[in-house]
C-alpha cells in the first residue's frame, strides 16, 4: 500500500475525526443500547421482543416498496422528457421539482392533511361536482402518497442525470439498425439508464422504509411504521433499549437491501463504474 505523507494525514484528519464522531460512535451506541437492559446488563431480550413488531416491519417494507415502484413509474418518463427538452425548459422543470424541497419536510407533509381531509380541499371539490366525499386521509394510500410526494425528487434526479448524458448517437444507431421507438427504449435507453434507476431506487427506498411522521399525520396513527415505532420508544416510552434494537434491525435490513441492489449494478459492469 502507498505510504501517506504527513500532510496527507493532516488533511485527512478532520474527516476521520468527523467519521468517528458522527458515524461510528452513534452506531456503537445503537449496538450498545440494543444489547443491554435499563441497568446496562448484557441481554438479548430487546431483540427477542421484536417479534411483536413483525407486522410493523412488514408494513414498512411493503409501503416503501410500493412508494418506490410508484416513484419509478412517475420519475422515469419525467426524467426522459426533461432530458429531451430544450435547456430553458429543463431548468424550469428542475426548479419545479426542487421547489417543494425548499420547504420543511414536516410542513410539506402537514399541508397534505388540508388537501386530503374529509372536509379538505379535494373532498369539497368532489362534493361540488357531485362525486361525493371520498375517504382519503387516514388510509394506507395517503401514507404512500406522502412517501411518493416527499421522495420523488430523489428518483427523478439520478435518472435525469444519466439520461441527459446518454449518447444520442447510440439511439440513432439503434434506429438505424431497425429499432422502432419501443425497441430503442428497451435495447439502448433502459440499459444505459440502469445505474440512475438503481441509485434512484436506493435513494427512495431507504428513507421510505425508515420514515416517521408521514404515517402519523396522513395515516392517522393507524398504520405504524418502524420509524414511528422507534420515535415512540425514544420520545414517549423512554425505552432506549427497545428503540435501539428496532433501529439495529432496520439498519441491517437496509444494508441487505443495498447489497442486493449493488448486485444489479455489478451485472452491468460499466454501469457500476458510475457509482
Amino acid at each position: 500500500m502507498k505510504k501517506t505523507s504527513l500532510t496527507a494525514k493532516l488533511v485527512n484528519a478532520p474527516y476521520i475525526v468527523w467519521s468517528v464522531l458522527f458515524i461510528l460512535a452513534p452506531m456503537i451506541m445503537v449496538v450498545y443500547y440494543a444489547l443491554t437492559d435499563r441497568d446496562g446488563n448484557f441481554t438479548f431480550s430487546n431483540l427477542g421482543s421484536l417479534s411483536s413488531y413483525s407486522e410493523t416491519f412488514g408494513r414498512s417494507i411493503w409501503y416503501a416498496f410500493l412508494a418506490t415502484v410508484i416513484c419509478l413509474l412517475l420519475a422515469y418518463p419525467l426524467a426522459y422528457i426533461m432530458a429531451h427538452s430544450k435547456a430553458s425548459k429543463q431548468r424550469t422543470l428542475m426548479m419545479l421539482i426542487m421547489l417543494p424541497m425548499w420547504m420543511n419536510f414536516l410542513i410539506r407533509t402537514y399541508s397534505w392533511i388540508t388537501i386530503l381531509a374529509n372536509t379538505g380541499i379535494l373532498n369539497t371539490l368532489f362534493e361540488t361536482i357531485g362525486i361525493g366525499r371520498v375517504q382519503m386521509i387516514n388510509t394506507p394510500g395517503a401514507v404512500i402518497l406522502g412517501m411518493v410526494y416527499n421522495y420523488l425528487p430523489y428518483m427523478v434526479l439520478p435518472i435525469y442525470s444519466v439520461m441527459s448524458k446518454l449518447d444520442q448517437s447510440l439511439v440513432e444507431a439503434a434506429q438505424d439498425l431497425g429499432c422502432n421507438n419501443r425497441a430503442v427504449l428497451k435495447t439502448v435507453i433502459f440499459p444505459q439508464s440502469l445505474p440512475g434507476v438503481i441509485s434512484g431506487i436506493t435513494m427512495v427506498f431507504v428513507p421510505s422504509v425508515s420514515t416517521f411522521y408521514i404515517s402519523q399525520k396522513l395515516g392517522g396513527g393507524k398504520f405504524m411504521l418502524v420509524g414511528d415505532a422507534i420515535e415512540m420508544q425514544f420520545q414517549s416510552a423512554y425505552n432506549y433499549n427497545l428503540g435501539a434494537a428496532l433501529s439495529l434491525v432496520l439498519m441491517l435490513m437496509i444494508v441487505i437491501c443495498m447489497l442486493i441492489m449493488n448486485r444489479f449494478t455489478d451485472d452491468s459492469e460499466e454501469g457500476a463504474m458510475l457509482f
Binding site: 448517437s169 447510440l170 440513432e172 444507431a173 438505424d176 435495447t187 460499466e270 454501469g271
Partner: peptide
C-alpha cells in the same frame, strides 16, 4: 440505408 457514425456509436454494454 445504414449508417457508420463518426464516433462509431457501438453499444458499450
Amino acid at each position: 440505408v445504414n449508417t457508420i457514425f463518426q464516433r462509431y456509436a457501438l453499444f458499450p454494454n
